[in-house]
């Protein structure tokens, strides 16, 4: 009897954790979406009004679109750069360890540090980037103050921060390509690019999809960068979905509405990831 109980005892911490911190919150979240609640007053039943509000909330729509814009810039950019750098590192070179370590450094540093730092680089008047631009005869760019530039700027920064991780992942993938393939291709006189597209790319395809999925999930939780750098401005061009949920919940204490936003947004993420997974499986 005791023997039979042991496995359950071992997994019991997880079961408790799951019930308290996953199952209950998810259930409660669904319940909250049908209520209005500012935490201090009693809950009020709201029917479907939170959902109605969500579908009429232009700012939330904008926040979701902003997040998607971020992803659309961030992901391709990240994959191309990461692949490029990984390809370079995969050559016969000295100091590979150093280069790899350098590329990886921003990955381990807190996002807060990165945002404080880049806020300085992106400054309009005294920022390093604009000083360089003016020196070489270009016009200054409102990296964080121009509504058209702000989100791309944040996406570039995020790429800078995360790309090192994906370089490593690709490097692992590249090393699984059998060298004979390249040798054979060289005998047939294939160029570098041909080798890359014909041999490398098909083999590391799974890695690419994994990177897409990983950075999609990461990108959907975009929060600290706009929170520190722009506060969501200019003209709400950098309000991310999570920032908006945070604002509704913890600024205005619209707990019911914030839960509705969170719930809806989570479904959105799940479906995007599902679609991506479908693609991966098809490809296999």
């Amino acid at each position: 009897m005791r023997k039979k109980l042991i496995p359950y005892l071992l997994v019991s911490p997880y079961i408790i954790y799951f019930l308290v911190f996953v199952a209950f919150p998810v259930g409660f979240s669904v319940y909250l979406t049908f209520n209005n609640w500012n935490i201090i007053s009693p809950m009020e039943f709201a029917g479907l009004s939170n959902y109605k509000r969500l579908f009429n909330d232009a700012l939330f729509r904008k926040a979701v679109v902003n997040t998607l814009i971020f992803l659309v810039i961030h992901i391709p950019f990240q994959i191309v750069i990461a692949l490029f750098l990984a390809e370079l590192l995969n050559q016969k070179i000295k100091f590979r360890g150093f280069f790899r370590a350098a590329f990886f450094l921003p990955v381990i540093v807190s996002g807060v540090v990165v945002t404080i730092l880049w806020q300085q680089l992106y400054g309009f008047d005294t920022g390093l980037l604009n000083r360089v631009l003016v020196k070489i005869g270009f016009a200054k760019i409102g990296w964080l103050t121009d509504p058209n530039w702000a989100m791309p700027s944040i996406a570039v920064m995020a790429t800078w921060k995360n790309v090192g991780l994906y370089v490593i992942l690709f490097l692992v993938g590249l090393q699984t390509v059998p060298p004979q393939y390249y040798e054979a291709a060289e005998l047939e006189g294939a160029t570098h690019l041909q080798k890359f597209f014909r041999i490398t790319l098909p083999i590391i395809n799974p890695t690419i999809f994994m990177v897409i999925v990983l950075s999609t999930i990461g990108g959907f939780s975009l929060f600290i960068e706009p929170y520190v750098m722009t506060g969501g401005g200019p003209l709400n061009s950098t309000v991310s979905a999570v920032l908006y949920i945070y604002k509704q919940g913890f600024f205005y204490h619209h707990m019911g509405y914030a839960a509705t936003l969170g719930f809806f947004f989570a479904l959105l993420i799940l479906s995007v990831v599902m679609i991506q997974k479908k693609f991966v499986e098809k490809d296999k």
Binding site: G123, D125, G142, T145, P234
Partner: peptide
């Protein structure tokens, strides 16, 4: 008035 956030400076 500048449009930039000078508070970061």
């Amino acid at each position: 008035f500048p449009k930039e956030r000078l508070s970061a400076r």
